[in-house]
Measured scan of single mutants.
Amino acid sequence: ELREAFRLYDKEGNGYISTDVMREILAELDETLSSEDLDAMIDEIDADGSGTVDFEEFMGVMT
C-alpha cells in the first residue's frame, strides 16, 4: 500500500520524489504545520541531503 502511494508521487518512475513534493504531502497531511516545521521535517527525512526522498525514506515517514 505504501509503495502504491509512493508511485503516485513518483510520476516519472525514477525511484524518488523531490523534497518539494514531500513537503506538499506533509502539508496536506497536517495543515497546521508551519513552514519552519516543514523545513525541519524535510531535513530529517532527507538525511543524506540529496534533495530527494527515496522509498525507504518515504516509508520511514509514513510508518
Rank of each mutant, 00 (worst) to 15 (best):
A40D: 09
L33S: 02
I25L: 11
D43G: 11
L29H: 11
R3M: 13
A40T: 08
T32S: 11
L26C: 02
T32F: 09
D39P: 01
V21L: 13
G60T: 15
L26W: 04
E24T: 12
D48L: 07
Y16I: 05
L8E: 14
M22W: 04
A5W: 15
L38P: 01
D48G: 08
F58G: 01
R23F: 02
F55K: 02
E44P: 04
D10M: 05
E44V: 11
G51R: 05
E12C: 08
T63L: 12
L8F: 13
R3T: 10
E4M: 03
L29T: 06
E31G: 14
E31Q: 14
S50M: 09
E12P: 03
M62F: 11
V53M: 04
G60Q: 15
V53D: 00
M41F: 07
Y16E: 03
Y9H: 13
R7V: 14
D54E: 07
K11T: 13
A5H: 09
S18L: 05
M62C: 09
D39M: 06
L33I: 05
G60F: 14
G51A: 04
V61M: 10
T32Y: 08
E12F: 06
T19F: 07
A47F: 11
E12N: 08
S50T: 12
E1F: 11
G49P: 01
D43L: 14
L29V: 07
V61D: 00
L33M: 07
R23W: 04
D48K: 09
S18D: 05
E28I: 14
F6S: 01
D39E: 07
V61W: 14
D37Q: 14
T52V: 09
G13H: 06
A47W: 12
I17Q: 00
E56G: 08
S50V: 08
I17R: 00
D20G: 10
S35N: 10
S18M: 06
E57W: 06
E12S: 07
T63Y: 06
D46C: 04
E57I: 13
R7P: 07
E56P: 06
A5N: 07
S18T: 12
N14F: 09
A5I: 15
R23E: 01
D20I: 12
K11V: 13
V61A: 10
V53K: 00
D10K: 00
D46W: 04
T63H: 09
S50Q: 05
I17Y: 01
I25Y: 05
G51F: 03
L33P: 01
I45E: 00
L33D: 00
S35Y: 08
A5K: 15
E24Y: 07
K11P: 13
R7Q: 15
E44S: 14
G13I: 03
S18W: 04
S34E: 05
L33E: 00
S34Q: 06
N14T: 11
D43F: 13
E57Q: 15
M59N: 03
E4R: 04
L33C: 05
V21A: 14
D39W: 07
E31R: 15
D43P: 03
E36C: 11
L38G: 01
S34T: 14
M41W: 15
E28F: 11
S35R: 11
S18N: 06
T63P: 04
V21E: 09
R23D: 01
S35M: 11
D10W: 06
G60L: 15
G49K: 12
M62D: 03
R7A: 15
L38A: 02
T19D: 02
S50N: 08
N14M: 09
V21Q: 15
E36F: 09
S18V: 02
T52P: 01
E56F: 10
V53R: 01
E28W: 11
E1K: 13
T52M: 12
E31A: 14
E4D: 11
E57R: 15
G51E: 03
D46H: 04
R7T: 13
M62G: 04
D43S: 14
L29Q: 07
T63R: 08
G13E: 07
Y9I: 07
M22F: 10
D10A: 03
I25T: 00
M22S: 00
E1P: 10
D54N: 15
G15P: 02
K11M: 08
N14H: 09
A40G: 06
T52C: 06
S18I: 03
S35Q: 13
D43R: 15
M22P: 00
D39C: 06
L29E: 02
L2F: 10
I25E: 00
A47N: 08
M59A: 11
E28Q: 14
L38H: 01
V53Y: 03
V61R: 03
